[in-house]
Amino acid sequence: MTDIKSLEKLTTQVRRDIVRMVHAVNSGHPGGSLGCAEFFVALYGEVLKYNPKKFTIDGKGEDLFFLSNGHISPVWYSVLARSGYFDVAELKTFRKLNSRLQGHPTTHEGLPGIRVASGSLGQGLSVALGAALAKKLNNDDRLVYSLHGDGELQEGQIWEAAMYAAANKVDNIISTVDYNGRQIDGDVEDVLDLGDLDNKWTAFGWDVLHSDGNDMTDVLKTLAKAKEHTGKGKPIMIIMRTEMGHGVDYMMGSHSWHGVAPNDDQLEKALAQNEETLGDY
């Protein structure tokens, strides 16, 4: 297993990438990206089996990851680049004309690591389930992972997919919800309260686990446990508590940094709180 220290180092560098990327184009979504940095680093640094140099959409014999809340593309792009899918220098093209790093992730420009477009919320769970079904048909025992926003759970399609997965015992999928409690218009409980999320997923027939998403050790432990729960007739949902904007003090504690880029001074502050560990792009 990769040691925690090196994963944490990578996480810090990813946070620098995120704030630098959104600052450079004065647009993008830093809040959720920062909050999910540990999760992405844990996935690509330790959990997933993948072949970044020979990327195929089909990904036969590999674990597959689907990002349903596509707006947190900065964290995914950073981790994909730093996992070898493409050159980290390409991060500077984020959201610019003719870039493969579109505002929201897409297969359209052929960026390695991405298997479906996402951005319009609520669609990724169904797609991930379809890929999981294909794995079963192909006798491919690798797993499918997906990540969703908590606000995204307000979309009806999520619950169509949730019902389908349990009824059909799709037990080769590990989904995670980024439970940061924030969405564009405010706190999730004020915009449209999700109610008892644990019992909702349990009632829908999912095997529910919990994680502290900003504690690398806990994320790794939960993902390992989730893997042990696969193949037992139930889809798995990790309810992962995170802090939106984690790692940049002034972005934490509210929803206001969901989709706002830092200015020059704010960038300085953010970088001062996250030292350059692996070299900026």
Partner: peptide
């Protein structure tokens, strides 16, 4: 969505 996902895997 399921249909889109099923194409991933051929």
């Amino acid at each position: 969505g399921l249909a889109a996902g099923l194409t991933i895997g051929g």
